[in-house]
Write a protein that binds this DNA or RNA. Structure first.
Length: 474
RNA sequence: GCCCCGUUCGUCUAGCGGCCUAGGACGCCAGGUUCUCAUCCUGGUAACACGGGUUCAAAUCCCGUACGGGGUGCCA
């Protein structure tokens, strides 16, 4: 794509782990920037100094890097620009567009509660709106600390255009005066957000629908500061948990790390998240990152919220696993295998096992787990209890093992020639029913990697020891 | 309470006035292929929230209701 002047930012608050919904927001911003050849900026909105943590700032960057969502500028920390925001607030103050408020948080809350009880609309009641200099001095003498509130219009409507939702309008009377500088002297989100979007030349704001209402306030501040232009806004549909409501921990994994550790590929995660609220015109679903970039289009983002479906993500991950080259998949699985098998990991065996597992796994963890039997000695092989119970119920299991042992003892050592069905069918049994017996003896479970290949990977002697051990246990 | 946004199969969605007896995908169910499991193939299940308009014609436009979500913070 030709370079453009589009400038977008992902601006999370570093107050916890990166929610899957935030990742989708980051992704859309990144896709749009990459699609148009624009600039993608990482901005950390850490104006709430009490809740923001360095740990979270580090984690955000780590997660974005793992996902491959690289940024061109930043990270810019708002905590380093408080003087700029405060200066803007002073300007608004001197122009009468904002005012000093001496109400304490508790007082405001109490009056709000009272309003609610009496059926009145809550919101700041404007008590400090028109204080005289003398009144202000009296409050200061009393030892009260000021916050700064922005004066919102009392009448008229606030409207702005949203790419996804069209014109969004609300009566100003429903938006009370709001704090832009806390009594502890720190600026609030609305102010920092408005100032930075101007200073950084942000042209497109893609963010969650939960911020739709706040846009009126940010835009009003922006105008009050002398900027009548506005960036393109696109409020993305929210991602809901199963059964509706916010996607939360009770719905399962909601942080990127959890999916990474469970063996999900970044490409699969991005692909799935991209499809929550958007899709390419031709209806394809399994797309590489490059394809996502090529196809992404704001005009095709839909307005309605989507429910997060772990099942479809799982399918998507399997699809992406199957599309990897052997080398790519080996590299992806290796960390998981190392964590499990450490020094016992045999690389040639590992590489062959990865190829065998590629067609039958939905996660990298599953792939690593399926090859466990290759990295233990014959007498350490753990038999999964369920599988053992299953084959114990097969009456002819001893006969099956006897026949297979005899076969393996003398069969030609050639993967293409080996045929375990022959000795089983010679007993008058169906191979399909007998196979779990052999799988359990060799791999420790009734279902797993193809057993002919597995026997070859283990070698004749090792395979025979396992078969005989199972036979003896029966 | 008030304000804002939304509403097509269980889920993700196609659809932007006639091509819709509503298409695809995931899931689920059944059958087939296969050395287990899985993959793969075939088939099936299942939706335009409701009520009014507008129009020759509405899933598509308008209004209302219901429902869902968000906001209503000295969080973002």
């Amino acid at each position: 794509m030709a370079p453009s002047d589009a400038r977008l930012r992902f601006s999370p608050a570093p107050t916890g782990f990166l929610h899957i919904g935030s990742v989708r927001t980051a992704l859309y911003n990144w896709l749009y920037a990459r699609h148009t050849g624009g600039t993608f900026i990482l901005r950390i909105e850490d104006t709430d100094v009490v809740r923001s943590t360095q740990e979270s700032i580090d984690e955000i960057q780590q997660v974005l890097r793992w996902l491959g969502l690289d940024w061109d500028e930043g990270p810019l920390l708002q905590s380093g620009r408080f003087d700029v925001y405060l200066e803007a607030a002073e300007r608004l103050l001197s122009e009468g567009k904002a005012y000093e408020c001496f109400c304490t948080e508790a007082e405001v809350r109490a009056r709000n509660d009272e309003a609610m009880r009496e059926g009145r609309t809550p919101g700041y009641d404007g008590r400090c709106r028109n204080l005289s200099a003398a009144e202000r001095a009296a409050f200061v003498a009393e030892g009260r600390v000021r916050s700064i509130r922005f004066r919102t219009p009392d009448e008229g409507r606030s409207t702005f255009d949203d790419v996804i939702r069209g014109e969004v309008a609300v009566d100003w009377s429903t938006i009370p005066d709001f704090v832009i500088v806390r009594s502890n002297g720190t600026p609030v989100f609305f102010l920092a957000n408005a100032v930075d979007d101007v200073d950084m030349g942000i042209t497109h704001v893609l963010r969650g629908e939960d911020l739709l209402d706040s846009t009126h306030r940010v835009l009003a501040l922006r105008r009050a500061l002398g900027h009548d232009d506005q960036p393109v806004y696109a409020h993305l549909p929210l991602i809901l948990g199963q059964g509706g409501g916010k996607l939360s921990k009770r719905h399962g994994a909601i942080s990127v790390e959890e999916y990474r550790d469970a063996g999900y590929l970044p490409g699969a995660l991005l692909n799935y998240l991209a499809l929550l609220g958007w899709g390419p015109e031709d209806g394809r679903e399994v797309l590489s990152v490059d394809e996502l970039i090529a196809e992404f289009d704001l005009a095709r983002v839909i307005p309605s919220a989507a429910t997060f479906d772990p099942k479809k993500l799982e399918w998507m991950n399997a699809e992406h696993i199957r599309r990897l080259t052997h080398t790519e998949l080996e590299a992806a699985v290796l960390p998981f295998a190392r964590a499990r098998y450490g020094g016992r990991l045999d690389i040639p065996r590992f590489e062959k096992a990865v190829v065998l597992a590629q067609e039958r796994a939905t996660t990298l963890v599953q792939i690593a787990d399926q090859m466990a039997f290759l990295f233990v000695s014959d007498d350490e092989l753990e038999i999964e209890p369920g599988s053992w119970e299953k084959i114990r119920r097969i009456e002819q299991a001893p006969a099956i093992l006897d026949a297979v042992i005899a076969y393996v003892e003398t069969c030609p050592w050639d993967l293409d020639a080996i045929d375990l069905k022959a000795p089983i069918e010679a007993l008058g049994l169906k191979a399909g029913k007998a196979m779990p017996v052999i799988y359990t003896a060799i791999e420790g479970r009734a279902a797993g990697l193809p057993v002919y290949d597995s026997i070859f990977l283990l070698g004749r002697e090792s395979a025979l020891r396992r078969l005989r051990a199972a036979r003896a246990k029966l």
